[in-house]
């Protein structure tokens, strides 16, 4: 192993720890979730997401159409006009920070969280 290889291995370990930490941190303490839908690079719709939200939404872009289902506090794609259907294969997302991207249709769906936890109400 050369010097540069060792440096790369170290960088990968740091990135891994960061990714795990971020994943654990982002999903905690964000009670208020919002689904943000983007089509052709623009936000077209924002929906509050909670356990009781239940809806089926069809999103259009210049490239195509996808249909999204919201149920039990989770989101997934049930139909898409795209060729690879990777967006459907991705399955359910529910945590703040998670996204589904349908690249051929230029549509993306993200769950964004707001920090509304105990610590905030005490501090302020």
């Amino acid at each position: 192993m050369e010097k540069g290889d060792k440096l790369l291995a170290l960088i990968l370990v740091v990135i891994f720890i960061f990714a795990i930490g971020q994943y654990a941190f982002v999903s905690i303490g964000k009670a208020k979730r919002t689904i943000i839908i983007r089509s052709d690079g623009e936000i077209v719709q924002q929906i509050p997401l909670n356990e009781t939200t239940e809806t089926i939404i069809t999103i259009k872009s210049k490239e195509g159409t996808i249909t999204m289902q919201v149920k039990n506090g989770k989101v997934h794609i049930i139909e898409s006009t795209c060729h690879d259907e990777l967006c459907i294969k991705q399955g359910w997302i529910s945590k703040a920070g998670e996204s589904i991207v349908c690249l051929p249709n230029r549509i993306s769906i993200s769950i964004v969280g707001e920090e509304k936890n105990e610590i905030d109400s005490i501090t302020y």
């Binding site: 790369l8 960088i11 990968l12 990135i15 891994f16 960061f18 990714a19 971020q22 994943y23 982002v26 943000i36 983007r38 690079g41 623009e42 920070g97 998670e98 996204s99 991207v101 690249l103 230029r106 549509i107 993306s108 993200s110 769950i111 964004v112």
Partner: peptide, 21 residues
């Protein structure tokens, strides 16, 4: 660039790690 979705930054660390592996 295509999606203009800043929420995707969330996936950057894991993508870099998987790319490296």
């Amino acid at each position: 660039y295509i999606t203009k979705n800043s929420a995707l930054w969330y996936y950057l660390p894991i993508l870099l790690f998987l790319g490296g592996i």
